[in-house]
Simulated scan of single mutants.
Amino acid sequence: MDDNRTNLKKQAILELIGQKGGKSSACLSGDWTLSNLTIDASLQKNIKQAANNSHLHWDLHSVNVLDNATALWLWQAWGQSLPAELEIKPEHLRLINKWQSQTVPDSSSPGFSVALTANYLAQMMANVFKQFLDFVTMLGQLLLDIGHLLRHPGDIPWPEISITIFESGVRALGITALVGFLIGIVLSYLSALQLKLFGAEIYIIDILGLSIIRELGPLLAAILVAGRSGSAITAQIGIMRVTEELDALSAMGISHSLRLVLPKVAALTVVMPLLSVWTSATALIGGMFSAQNTLDISYQQFLIKLPDAVPLLNVFIGLGKSAVFGLMIALIACHFGFCIKPNTESLGNETTNSVVAAITVVIMVDALFAILFMDVGMP
């Protein structure tokens, strides 16, 4: 018997009394908690129906427990205003008054708005313009640092340059060789299928030579370095921001540009042409391997015909593009690294932005080179 009474006290009860002093009354009793409201869905429906009567008298004196979430729910059911006639305990009234002084966010969908869309586009353009200004500022500071090093060669940060060359160049030889070799095999195999139809198997040397040395070799190496080394540079600078190492360098009077940006730019500008040659060589080896198996073109025949099919000028075009790719990848990686705020979420976002921006810029620069040197180096 006592257990039944205890359970009744813990339940949320709503009683609608027809007449009390000539007015209808809604009496609430028991424990008005979020769990009780969730269990009894009909209770929520009855409260909302009763709240539609603006002349209803509300009696909450018998409520034993009223939690914060239920107070918010009652406040919203009443139309975010207290009923004209309300009897409630002072401690429960304070809970409702707390929501009365706060703005509850609207969970409904805002829908399409021309003004909001225009504002979003304006903010996006302003952000892009700011990023561009910061990038140009970094490039200008880099030129000033180069001028300083020309006057003071003893300040050249050789250790930072050498470690970046090792990390971005030497340790990337394996993955670039593997990707280059496989791309050479795929390109040679697909080209062989079409050349067989016209009896022009020997022209596979021209196709592989021009496409790999002039375009695919530098582009593949740049994309791999942007994803591998570019992200590492951005994350490294970001970690220095999070651990306040950048502030420590500033406090000691050490230039961020001279010690962080310039070594990475110099290293990648030197490394990228070398990686481009390495990737092109492995891709040509893969192409020779596939051509020998599919078209019966020997390795000796391939190597003898290659210099005639590909003028030497194409090699210099590939090397020049690779140097520009390395410069842009390093600058973009450092730029986004300095954009990182001292929190882990910003670190992940800016590292992703760095890789995406670097690969996009590499492809855009490659397209620009293709247009500018369209008639240069053709056999």
Rank of each mutant, 00 (worst) to 15 (best):
L312W: 15
I304Y: 07
Y299T: 01
V270F: 04
V270A: 07
T279Y: 03
I304G: 00
L268V: 11
A283T: 01
A266R: 08
M272R: 09
L295H: 00
Q301I: 02
S290F: 11
F289L: 14
G286T: 08
L260H: 12
G286K: 03
A283D: 00
D308G: 15
K264Q: 13
K264W: 12
N293K: 10
F289Y: 00
M288H: 12
A266F: 02
P311H: 07
L268E: 01
L274Y: 02
L284E: 06
L303G: 05
L275V: 01
L262E: 00
S290D: 10
L274K: 08
P263Y: 03
L268R: 01
S290Q: 09
I297L: 10
S280Y: 06
V315Q: 03
N293M: 13
A283I: 07
L306V: 07
I297N: 08
F289A: 13
V270R: 08
Q301H: 09
S257Q: 13
M272G: 00
S276T: 11
V310M: 13
Q301D: 04
D296S: 15
S257F: 13
L260Y: 13
V310W: 04
Q301M: 09
P263H: 10
T282M: 05
D296W: 03
A283Q: 03
Q292Y: 12
V270L: 14
L275A: 06
A309L: 04
L306R: 02
K264D: 08
Q300C: 13
Q292S: 06
L258A: 09
A291L: 02
F316A: 11
L275S: 10
Y299W: 07
Q300M: 10
F289K: 04
F316W: 15
F316D: 14
Q292K: 10
Y299G: 08
T282D: 03
L284Q: 03
R259K: 14
T294I: 08
F302K: 06
L262Y: 04
F316I: 06
L262Q: 04
A267Q: 07
W278D: 05
L306F: 05
V265N: 03
A266C: 14
D308L: 12
T282K: 02
S290V: 06
V310R: 09
T282P: 08
Q292N: 14
L274D: 05
V265K: 10
V310L: 06
V265H: 03
T294D: 09
G286W: 06
L313I: 14
